[in-house]
């Protein structure tokens, strides 16, 4: 039955101290086991054989070309998805039209598709047995098992990141400022660059960071389309897999530590961007 809590007249809205202590310990233990432990393991195992072995592993030719390919892929993917994200967010956030929520759902599709399926669909189109396969072969254009295929598959999996960050942000900011600029005679592009962009710049940064992290780290989709040809179609994650499967553990973790470092930088920038976005939203509410 409901008991009366004895004590002060003030109502009781916190747990007893021992409960708080227990819950905190269990929660931190869970986080330590599943997050902190793997994170430290990457770096410890990367340096297991010392600094020189670490640097030698990173300077190995196949690894260097993997790094270049990953950088190239990210440089190709992020701007095109950024452009799409901004364009789509403008259309969706500043206007109302039938089918808007369908469009938003469709944009979210790559998010929910398995990476392996994402790679498979590009093989189905551009592979030798695919729709365009014979045409591509006749013109000696290689897409699957070559760099263009990797870029395409990565564009697919990183497709929604910028858009799904900007759409809610721009929707919550409304159209008032842009319409005011319109009445003052500004053209479309001027409105965007002088009024909209300053308000969304932190959202853009947030989306770009996540898009980049996924583009550099994508494994499943790239695995399907790349052909794993050392020195030419291996990205850094694929190179990690190859080294690990060859039992070159220290080298594999050395290369993996680059990606882990990227993850930590991503998290830090993400935290900053989130803070700035919150500030922007409270500013526009005033």
């Amino acid at each position: 039955m409901i008991k009366r809590k004895s004590g002060k007249g003030a109502s009781n809205i916190t747990e007893p101290a021992w409960v708080r202590c227990l819950l905190t310990t269990v929660a931190l233990g869970f986080v330590a086991l599943f997050l902190v432990l793997p994170l430290t393991a990457v770096f410890v195992q990367a340096f297991e054989k010392g600094w020189e072995a670490y640097l030698a592993a990173l300077n190995e030719p196949d690894t260097v070309s993997a790094i270049w390919l990953t950088l190239l892929t990210a440089t190709a993917c992020v701007p095109v998805n950024l452009f799409f994200g901004i364009v789509a967010a403008w259309a969706i956030a500043k206007f109302s039209f039938p089918g808007k929520s369908l469009l938003v759902t469709l944009i979210d599709i790559p998010f929910s598709v398995s990476p392996v399926v994402s790679g498979l669909i590009y093989v189905l189109i551009f592979g030798l047995q695919g729709w365009l396969g014979p045409w591509l072969q006749a013109h000696d254009v290689k897409i699957i098992f070559a760099v263009p295929g990797i870029v395409l598959a990565t564009v697919f999996v990183t497709f929604p990141f910028v858009a799904r960050e900007l759409i809610p942000l721009m929707e919550s900011q409304g159209c008032d400022e842009e319409e005011a600029a319109l009445t003052l005679g500004a053209s479309g592009l001027k409105i965007f660059f002088r009024v909209t962009f300053p308000n969304i710049k932190w959202g853009v940064l947030y989306g770009v960071i996540l898009c980049n992290a996924r583009a550099m780290g994508e494994f499943g989709a790239v695995s399907v389309v790349s052909g794993h040809i050392r020195g030419s179609t291996n990205t850094v994650p694929l190179q990690v897999e190859i080294l690990y499967n060859e039992y070159s553990y220290a080298a594999a973790f050395a290369v993996a530590s680059l990606l882990a470092l990227l993850a930590l930088v991503t998290l830090a920038l993400k935290a900053v961007a989130e803070l700035k976005i919150r500030q922007t939203l409270t500013d526009t509410e005033r």
């Binding site: 931190l28 986080v31 997050l35 902190v36 432990l37 793997p38 994170l39 393991a41 990457v42 195992q45 990476p115 996540l210 992290a213 550099m216 780290g217 994508e218 494994f219 499943g220 850094v236 994650p237 694929l238 990690v240 897999e241 690990y244 553990y249 594999a252 973790f253 993996a256 990606l259 882990a260 990227l262 993850a263 930590l264 991503t266 998290l267 830090a268 993400k270 935290a271």
Partner: peptide, 24 residues
């Protein structure tokens, strides 16, 4: 710090997570 770390599985590439968990 823990709050920011919760997002690690979003940011860490899957291959890195894979080999690390396997080795642990």
């Amino acid at each position: 710090l823990i709050d920011a770390l919760v997002d690690l599985p979003f940011a860490l590439p899957t291959a890195v997570a894979g080999i690390t968990l396997a080795s642990i």
